[in-house]
């Protein structure tokens, strides 16, 4: 019974966090679903913390190996996830910018040609 009691607290945290997740994420527009998923992906890279703990408690070669692989996986997940999400999000703009100036010039020129005859 005491064991079950000690579980109540983490389970409450888990359930409430799921509800917060539903509440926050259901407001994300479809336009941003890919960055949302890759952003959420980076968040589960938090298992990196778990990797650090198992490295700290390792005593034999097997445990060190497991911890090492977990660290590599977790770090790739965290770093790659945040960088690629940022790369995507910086592309979302309200108005077209820089490259448009070039195409405008080009189309302007072609229009000029068109009106000449």
């Amino acid at each position: 019974m005491t064991e079950l009691t000690s579980l109540l607290y983490p389970i409450s945290v888990f359930v409430l966090a799921i509800l917060v997740g539903f509440e926050v994420i259901s407001k994300v527009p479809a336009t941003l679903h890919t960055p949302l998923m890759s952003g959420a992906n980076s968040i589960h890279g938090i298992v990196l913390v778990g990797g650090m703990f198992i490295a700290a408690s390792a005593h034999d070669p097997l445990a060190y190996t497991i911890a090492f692989v977990a660290m590599v996986f977790g770090a790739a997940n965290v770093v790659g996830g945040y960088v690629v999400t940022d790369r995507m999000l910086q592309m979302f703009r309200k108005k077209p910018v820089a490259p448009k100036a070039g195409t405008e010039g080009a189309t302007g020129a072609s229009r000029g040609q068109g009106s000449r005859p």
């Binding site: 888990f14 917060v20 997740g21 926050v24 994420i25 959420a40 992906n41 968040i43 589960h44 938090i46």
Partner: peptide, 9 residues
Amino acid sequence: ISGALVGAS
């Protein structure tokens, strides 16, 4: 918490 958030998402 993080796992629950990602699970929900």
